[in-house]
Amino acid sequence: MTLFLTVTAARKPRVLTPVALVAVALLAACVAQPTVPTRPESTQQTQPPALPPTTAPAPAPATTIPPLLPTQPSGRPQPSAESFPKTLAAAGTGPAVLALARQAQTFRSAGRPQDALGQYERALRIEPKNAFVWQAMAETHLALHNVEQAESAARKSNSLARGNPWLELGNWRVIAAALGVYGDSPAAQAARTRADEIGSALAASSGGGALPAASAVP
């Protein structure tokens, strides 16, 4: 029984659509996983993930969208969405960074996004890997129409999100909006679809509960 489930979890992501992957991942989250990976029965060669062109300054978004929820190392329990923090304050952030985020929010409300960016940078000097701060920075860049930086900061936040779907939802929304500034390109559509998929997966898993607003920073 356990064995079958493991095989499914280990192999399915390669062939399933992203939507199905959410279901599998969420299902897998409910089941304790054995620690030994099982030898795949199929010899079917999977496509290596496409890589961004390294000479181009930015990776082509359509080719770099990673799996919807990060593939967890085999054998580790898949955390549920609810186990991830939804806000900066809930993410174990220190009081200094919280104070800077509040100050930044004040600047944003006062129509001083440049000053808000300065506060987020101060915050990142203290907690450089804080994905919530990177996300807030991405949103601020978006408000300034710095679309390239908005996209980059949102991707950085995704890199540091370590599978937090609440963060990824917000980041994909920023990326979709940033890419959408120059028209409804396939890349923008893909990013929007990604955001929608995470959104519906979260809605489903949290029993239709309210999703966080675009900004997760207080």
Binding site: T54, A58, P59, G118, E121, Q149, S152, R155
Partner: peptide
């Protein structure tokens, strides 16, 4: 350089973090 101000203390320019993903994260 992070910031440049005038001698009167007026902000002139700020150089914010600029980043761009140019290498694939996994590799």
């Amino acid at each position: 350089i992070r910031e440049v101000m005038t001698k009167e203390g007026q902000p002139l320019s700020r150089y914010s973090f600029q980043l761009k993903q140019t290498l694939p994260e996994g590799p």
